[in-house]
Amino acid sequence: MRSIRFLLLLVLSSPACDMARTRLVFMEPESVVQSEKLETFGQSLQLADRSYVESALKDVFEVTPEFPEAKQLEDLIYFDGSFGGGCDLYGASEVVSGTAAQAEFKRASCGIKLSESQPVTSSAQRMAQTVKACDVLIYGANTFPRVMAKVIPGWTAGRAANRPTPERLKVAYALFDRTGLLPDTVIEKLMDLSNSVSDADEAWRWVLKAYCESPEFLQAW
């Protein structure tokens, strides 16, 4: 601690540090050190920012700009600051009222509802927006066929032969989770879930909901 205080005094004694010198009193160095110690005990999980989330979901469901799902997805992810990220001066001045989703240039905005300088973390709001975004894509007329074609080459809608199987479940999961790890116990549960639905396409939608709503594939790596 002594060395830290010495360093602080050394730095703050330079002529360029008049403002910082004032802060020395304000910050009360010994307490600051203790606070930072406290902070290190807290668990921290930073999730992916909005650009990543948008691109990850677009990648899985092969969303192209002309799809109506693209705009719906954008409106949900850039709805507020839940997904953090991307704040710049233009964005900060642009969004002064209403929600970020109403802004003309959503990607430039800070989002007005969460402090933009805070790290991107988990919240109920974020998960609600994620659940909605997943629904848009899973029930999307354009996006559902795209993701299914990745799981089952030559997939067409309404074919009973396209029902989920353990192998197909793994293929689909790997689209979402880079690790591709899906324990057998989870596969069993997923098979039970999908077998409860008579329609093959609908069965897949429930499986995809499970994958898409499992938040871990959207954590920051």
């Binding site: 902070e39 807290g42 921290s44 600051g81 953090g84 007005i112 509802k113 969460l114």
Partner: peptide, 15 residues
């Protein structure tokens, strides 16, 4: 506001 876990506070709008 600052949390050790990095929780953000949700800022409500007046209107």
């Amino acid at each position: 506001f600052k949390s050790a876990k990095g929780i953000s506070q949700l800022e409500l709008t007046k209107d």
